[in-house]
Nucleic acid binder design. Structure first.
Lengths: 238, 238
DNA sequence: CGTCGTTGTATCTCCATGGACACAGCGGTG
DNA sequence: CACCGCTGTGTCCATGGAGATACAACGACG
């Protein structure tokens, strides 16, 4: 069971998706829409039409030549390349979402600003982006947003961003190449995951059982309505 | 022009998408698949079939009753509620992706580990997750991953995680309720965005023109192939 | 005991997406 | 001057997803 998202880029009313990007990359790689279609096992006519359709909102994507040596061909515009790069980064970000585990804690919103709020959880109070509707929430932090510090160093509270800060004990520590996945037990029930560099593990001289401080930004912490928080459930048909 | 992703959760072979979640929420809210379908302007038959289809891989989602007071109805299982909550968080994360701007710098991979690498950019060297193929890359950091510090405080380099650290000057500062969007000019050409709390702005006593240090984790920094980096382009048909 | 609001199926139709195919035009090349 | 490998366009058809419709069953309630 894993979660993710299908990346897309929307311009005006039309959306560029994975499939479109695949076609453009094929054109770039093979120098013609014809061969791109062939290579991708897709219909040339469709690709041609789709590209010209997209160009109406996205701007020029290819310059094409008919006839000549090799019969002609199509080359991507710099506009198209920019789009592809943008999509690559988007894809990387989204797939990062899928690959990075998220630590989840249930809690209750006890203080609420415009978008920021304080959530009371078993592990302590957390500053997070809170949804407008519900008070019963689940707070999520992605492991790549969590930093680990030695417990004795006080991160100057006056200078640093409003960071959430939890002290805990290293439960597991998995090195994966030059990265490491650390599970920190905070309080009795809560586990906080951190994705850090292997170099940091060495620098902190981290081992299972050690005490550490996990810290993460409020703006990287998101709360969503908790399961019980849904209003429905009370069936009401009279 | 904005980018995003359509969230989905995949279990076994079947995927739960926005539409499925909408249906389940409708059932929860109205107490029956029948009224959920009606309210959502969708076909009851479809929803019923879809739910039972999903249940085969995802596990029980509803308990249904036929006849009785009100003719029966359907209630979500706790399994379904968990799924919905998971989806809510996923949606929040993905929509966060869409809403949070990303700072992008082009550069070249000068050192490469297993997944981590060092990228040389106009603003300096950055540690980032690098792709396997290309050396010409674009480095991206999402603004909610960037912390700001006062320039005089040295964040103990021995204790903290391997964080990228850039000194710059505040170019713009937009308060949006209890959040603030800060553009930091690093070097001549590079702008780094940071999404921080308004409280942090006050604490740092930040104003446009001030010098600040922007810092962000290596594991939250992603590189993707740069536009020029694509191999194709060299048309080769002989 | 019939009515009512559901669940659970089965079947038909509509529509959008995308492949398949056909054909004209283009411009170097042999 | 015919050929080749493309572009550009029109048309038909297969497929899948989803609405529409129909109908049996169910169980409390008046």
């Amino acid at each position: 069971m894993d979660a993710g998202g299908d990346p897309y880029i929307e311009v005006d009313g039309s959306t560029v998706d994975e499939r479109d990007v695949e076609a453009l990359q094929g054109i770039d790689e093979h120098g013609s829409m014809y061969r791109a279609a062939e290579e991708l096992g897709r219909s040339y006519a469709r690709i041609q039409r789709r590209v010209t359709e997209l160009e109406q909102t996205v701007g020029p994507l290819v310059v094409s030549e008919r006839g000549g040596a090799g019969g002609g061909g199509s080359t991507l515009t710099s506009n198209a390349r920019t789009l592809l790069a943008r999509f690559d980064r988007l894809r990387a970000a989204v797939s990062g979402l899928a690959r990075t585990e998220e630590s989840v804690v249930s809690g209750r919103v006890v203080d609420r600003g415009e978008r920021l709020g304080t959530v009371e959880t078993p592990a302590g109070r957390v500053r997070a982006l809170v949804p407008a509707g519900a008070d019963a929430v689940q707070v999520g932090v992605r492991s790549d947003a969590v930093s680990l510090l030695a417990p004795d160093e006080a991160p100057q509270p006056a200078g640093t961003s409003a960071r959430n800060r939890f002290e805990g004990k290293v439960r597991t520590l998995d090195r994966e190449g030059d990265l490491a996945r650390v599970a920190v037990a905070v309080g009795a029930e809560t586990t906080l995951w951190a994705l850090i560099t292997a170099a940091s593990v060495d620098r902190l001289d981290l081992a299972e059982g050690d005490r550490v401080v996990a810290s993460f930004k409020a703006t990287a912490t998101r709360a969503a309505p908790a399961p019980e928080g849904r209003t429905g459930a009370n069936r009401d048909r009279s």
